[in-house]
Design a protein around this nucleic acid. Sequence first.
DNA 1: TCCGAATCTAGAACGTGTTTCAATAATAGG
DNA 2: CCTATTATTGAAACACGTTCTAGATTCGGA
Lengths: 194, 194
Amino acid sequence: MTETPGSNAQRERRRRILDATIALANEGGFDAVQMREVADNADVALGTLYRYFPSKVHLLVTALGRQFERAEAQAQGRPVPGDTPHERVMHVLGVTTKAMQKQPQLTEALTRAFMFADASVSEEIHYVGMKLTAIITHAIEGTDQTREPTEEDTAIVRVIGDVWLSALMGWVTGRTTADEVERSMDVAVRLLLR
Amino acid sequence: MTETPGSNAQRERRRRILDATIALANEGGFDAVQMREVADNADVALGTLYRYFPSKVHLLVTALGRQFERAEAQAQGRPVPGDTPHERVMHVLGVTTKAMQKQPQLTEALTRAFMFADASVSEEIHYVGMKLTAIITHAIEGTDQTREPTEEDTAIVRVIGDVWLSALMGWVTGRTTADEVERSMDVAVRLLLR
DNA sequence: TCCGAATCTAGAACGTGTTTCAATAATAGG
DNA sequence: CCTATTATTGAAACACGTTCTAGATTCGGA
């Protein structure tokens, strides 16, 4: 799927770096992901870290992309429970929200990096966006994978993704609770999938 | 409206600081708003700047709030053109998008600060959110200000605001063009206001 | 007008993201 | 196996947000 270029040793280094990143983020959030610390924990020189990832934000957004990849791989084939698009989308969002609640620091780190990213990270951002829409589309379609998503479906998926990001931001910045996230998602999805 | 406390000299300092912030942001975006530079240009000591605004993000989000205040004051009383809620909302969003296109650096600076804000900025963030929903609500209502907004209206306004923020982020990070922002807003508003 | 408290100033200092560089190690091509 | 190229290392240096300190200055109340 995602062919990572380079020698074996290089793939290993890259993996160690991303692992260290996730571990640090999980413990202390965005601020705890310090480049010197990541390099140390990944057994790599600081310069090497910067050769692999040109900035902290690149690093974190790439890590987010890897998380989405794994989530997608896990959901692969398994049908989403629920009889209506609304139910299925809410199920996926609910599961995701619950997972994020269990690792609030990690969520904070990855979300803030995503939000803070500037134009130089657009490629990585775009990748994450694709994964997100793929997951929501999959939920809307349900088992009925035969039907090609209409243009309207695509638009709806994008809007749901947007609302979810905003809600996530509210939660990460402590303005809303996880319950409120779920409630506001429910309202938005109801408005859109009617 | 917004009673700024303190002596005259203090209000003046605060104004100079925010003016310098906007000016720097307008020239060079988020990175060009450097605290030492802001302090210099506003003729205050660095320590004073930090007494007024405890962080760069507080500073920028407060500046964003002031911009919204002014936008709201200008729109005050003037009815929004358009015969339907959809038309009126799109008109407001279109005008805003155009204004932002004229000052892309300023938009980048304020948007990124808003996105990056953490829990300590929730008050300022909340203020900006209120202004935004007020503007959208005003557009939906149009001249017919008699009708109390329903609960559904409120929910719709919030979703529109969320989508707009996401679209804005896409534009700021160079993933989408201003045209695409407007187009995706049109789709979202159509989906919601039907 | 005078005093004490609050505010402001100038500047040094610190932490962390980022850059740079010389030396060493690994790797690929002949 | 040798060599040229490239990658990695370790460490210093730089940039900018933030904090701290010591001494003016300003301000409000007696």
